Measured scan of single mutants.
Amino acid sequence: DESNKPILLPNESQSFERSVQLLDQIPSYDTHKIAVLYVGEGQSNSELAILSNEHGSYRYTEFLTGLGRLIELKDCQPDKVYLGGLDVCGEDGQFTYCWHDDIMQAVFHIATLMPTKDVDKHRCDKKRHLGNDFVSIVYNDSGEDFKLGTIKGQFNFVHVIVTPLDYECNLVSLQCRKDMEGLVDTSVAKIVSDRNLPFVARQMALHANMASQVHHSRSNPTDIYPSKWIARLRHIKRLRQRICEEAAYSNPSLPLVHPPSHSKAPAQTPAEPTPGYEVGQRKRLISSVEDFTE
């Protein structure tokens, strides 16, 4: 099969070098950035008060330690540790928490760990991170309901609301924008112990962030949302095809390698009803078989 044979790379090609550099910018793992907010007593309706908090309760602090690993920003190499735009020179604080497994990295933009500057009256330095995160974990210690939209931002799609209760338990629920209701189930609340709260809140936030990324990708319907490693695979396959075309153009005697095509017509299947918005969006999480067989 010609399409699977190794090909020689061009010795000097600026377009090839640019493509390789672009490939280096696509990590081999999925990345997520999640905002974390603490809401104190009497702050449920005040964005400024929430963003001005420099610490929270003892249970909130224990919750943070379970979310991930504490890292010092100045020691991080952005090409190895995903920071979601946090500055490593102290502009966004000294520490944050991050978490990773074999296929993804997540960083938490924690408002109480970011510096509260006197010259920044409206807390814009914090909002440029927190307001651009799709998902926020809100530790609501106010005793009042927290409403979506209290923290203004164009991309605040989903809130994971943590409400501490007695007996070391917590109520965990989801809020989302109306255009996200087909992807996020907000109907079920959970009672979770303090011990298990970081794991549950983190998983709910990661799932909500993946759904938000799919939702946000609708602005470019021709580019369905893939995982990062599938995006790398697609980029490599496009690069291979372009090299083959350039080689055939410079030397017409060489065969032009095309991806294999299936001449056999697909079997006719009964027509199915058109899937609704929710089903269609969830299918976009699934990769096409052509990603692996071309």
Rank of each mutant, 00 (worst) to 15 (best):
N220K: 08
L171P: 01
S212P: 01
R234W: 04
H100Q: 14
Y38A: 00
L86G: 15
E2H: 08
P221M: 04
T269V: 12
S57Q: 01
Q154H: 12
G90T: 09
G40F: 01
V119Y: 12
G66Y: 01
P273I: 08
F108E: 01
E91A: 12
S227C: 08
H159A: 15
V138L: 02
P10V: 14
C124Y: 15
A248C: 10
P226T: 08
E2C: 10
A267S: 09
Q213Y: 07
E72P: 09
S261N: 12
D223W: 06
Y167G: 06
S173Q: 15
D101Q: 02
D75N: 14
Y167R: 03
M204T: 05
A267T: 10
G153M: 10
M210V: 06
D125N: 15
S136H: 06
Y225V: 13
Q105A: 14
R195C: 11
E62A: 07
H100M: 09
D87S: 13
S227W: 08
S173P: 01
D79Q: 06
A201N: 00
D30F: 05
L206I: 08
V81K: 13
R202H: 02
P78Y: 11
C244D: 14
L70P: 11
Y60P: 01
K5L: 15
T65A: 11
N209H: 07
N209G: 13
E246C: 08
R69D: 15
W99V: 02
W99Y: 11
S187T: 12
G56R: 02
G93C: 12
K74E: 06
E294S: 10
Q77R: 12
L73F: 07
E246T: 06
E245I: 08
R218W: 07
V200C: 03
H235W: 08
V39S: 01
F95P: 07
R202D: 00
A267G: 12
D223S: 08
C176H: 03
P164K: 00
L23C: 08
K264I: 10
V119H: 09
R18D: 14
L67D: 00
E91S: 13
L113S: 05
V135H: 00
I191E: 04
A205T: 01
T116E: 06
S227P: 07
G40D: 04
I243K: 05
F199K: 02
K117G: 09
D141P: 00
L51Q: 02
V192T: 02
Y38N: 00
A231V: 06
M204I: 06
S263I: 08
L285D: 15
F108H: 01
Q281C: 09
Y29W: 10
D118W: 06
I34R: 01
H100L: 05
E168R: 05
E181F: 05
F63I: 00
F155E: 08
N196E: 02
W229D: 14
S28L: 13
K228R: 08
I191P: 03
V160N: 00
I286G: 13
G131A: 14
N4R: 13
L197C: 14
K264F: 08
T116C: 11
S187D: 08
G56W: 02
H100S: 14
L8W: 09
W229L: 06
P266E: 12
D92E: 12
I26S: 06
N45S: 10
Q203A: 03
S193A: 03
V192M: 01
A247F: 15
K190P: 15
G93M: 14
P266G: 11
Y58G: 07
S28E: 15
R282K: 13
N45E: 08
H129G: 04
